[in-house]
Amino acid sequence: MERYKFEDLISDYIENKLPLAKRKEVEAFMEDNPEAKEQMESIRLLMNSMRDLSEVKISDGFMENLMKRVEFEKNRPSNKKHAVSGRSKTYFGFTPVYATVMSCLIVALVLVALQLMPTNNLNSITIPSSIAEQEAEIPKPSNIINPDKDLMFAEDDDTTNIDNQNRIKNGKYDKNIKLVGNK
């Protein structure tokens, strides 16, 4: 047996958890190695000493303070809620109280939204009377040229007239056109 294997088995040996064969192996190793036997004995003593360590007592005011804290926790709203949460019903994740409050809020919001909505038809917009009066005061001009008429004059002078081109293609020339070089 090697040293590290012996050390792995020390606790099991002291607590009588080794099978007989292993136990004998450990004992044989200790016979051959006095320092191993000393180590085993030292750990056994240490374990006994730890068991005998004096108990650490709580202070005199401990119970009084604890009861105060318990009383405080008992009266805390969050804990009251926690205490009843397992038994109470919920609506969409809300407790009955919160569900009622939320419902009221939603109804109130809908009512406010309805109040804010315009009641008149958008097509029948009436012009304010002040604007109508101003419009009446503007004089109507008498010499307005018809814009369509002007456009017609412009078309007559246009050299890119499509009809002229067609006339040339058909062999009918305008009387104003003189052929040059065709004697």
């Binding site: 360590l53 108990e55 650490v56 007592k57 709580i58 401990f62």
Partner: peptide
């Protein structure tokens, strides 16, 4: 359990006042 817990916690945190708070 108060004393058993106190012994355990005190040996663990090595501070009597802190240990008592933890037990509480």
């Amino acid at each position: 359990f108060r004393d058993r817990l106190m012994s355990f916690v005190y040996r663990f945190v090595n501070d009597e006042v802190v240990a008592e708070d933890i037990v509480q």
